[in-house]
Design a protein around this nucleic acid. Structure first.
Lengths: 177, 177
DNA sequence: ACCTGAACACCGTTCAAGT
DNA sequence: ACCTGAACACCGTTCAAGT
């Protein structure tokens, strides 16, 4: 299907900005990646980004949406093995973009857009975890606390880089609890 | 004992800067508290701060040292009640300066000074927790993982504001594990 | 030794103008 | 509708100079 109206559809340019932002945010961090460097990487003038996005945080939200919708689909594909293995899988997946995770947490206060995204993500993650614990037959009164402890542990594993073996031991201890 | 040499000892001025920084960092956050506003609050010119501190992160380190050396002493004073209560106490103490905690985590990568402080703090905290679990008679092979999970849970409680009742339930579930 | 006014290089964002 | 060059207000930090 040939392009008829333009050399480049507007959505493609937007996607290029998001792709460039993903690369820069993951490789160097959100703050280190200035709007002018992001613009250069995407092949536009700095202020052109403001045509597509309200501000820098909205660019981040677009990156987050693209990143995690794909991974969430992957998660649903993997077979329901033991709980320790699933926790480790999630920690390692998120670990590949741990800079993004850290940035989200550090910008919660300043940016309502990031805050809203973060709450959606947590609500979804906790709902999935809760369903798994129910299905595993955990006593109902323990579930809510264990959901939180599991989430906090995954966040801890992301924030502090630990050797793979130690990560594994922690996930195993948590699954056994 | 009367002051003999100056109107004001140099250490007092330094302390005033640290005190002003503590107030601003806790109330408004590290990034929102600019060096010029900090200088105004301390009653000096912006660049005067650089006479006492290498950079803004060193000011933060001074604030952290002053803040946590006092609280650590308090912790050692409280009687060894049950583990859940101790966890909750720590979470609530740190919760009063949760902005500082968040700032430390968000500046680990950029600032070697903050990073060094953070590692000292974690080493100390983990050593204390390890000793408590040993004394409580926990099986040695479980201790390391439980130390990490406890630390991560406290950090999680700080990062996400939860109702007191839910915090209590989480600490109880963790102590029972 | 201690402190300052003025400047520097950078940042995210906005504006008026072009097509 | 889409994109830009130039400017704005701000930031942490440095410099040369004063006492």
């Amino acid at each position: 299907m040939a392009r008829t109206k333009r050399d480049q559809a507007p959505e493609e340019k937007r996607d290029e900005i998001v792709a460039a932002a993903r690369t820069l945010f993951v490789a160097e961090g959100y703050e280190a990646a200035s709007m002018s460097r992001l613009a250069t990487a995407a092949g536009v003038a700095p202020n052109t980004i403001y045509w597509y996005f309200r501000d820098k945080d909205e660019v981040l939200v677009a990156v987050l949406d693209a990143e995690f919708s794909a991974r969430m689909a992957d998660y649903l594909q993997i077979p329901a093995t033991d709980r320790a293995e699933r926790l480790l899988w999630v920690a390692n997946q998120l670990g590949q973009v741990s800079r993004l995770v850290g940035t989200v947490h550090s910008r919660l206060e300043k940016s309502p857009a990031i805050n809203a995204w973060h709450e959606r993500f947590h609500a979804l993650s906790e709902a999935m975890l809760r369903a798994e614990l129910q299905q595993a037959g955990m006593a109902p009164e323990r579930i809510e606390a264990m959901v939180k402890i599991s989430i906090f542990t995954i966040e801890g594993l992301l924030a502090h880089q630990l050797p793979e073996q130690e990560k594994r031991a922690i996930c195993a201890a948590l699954a056994a609890a």
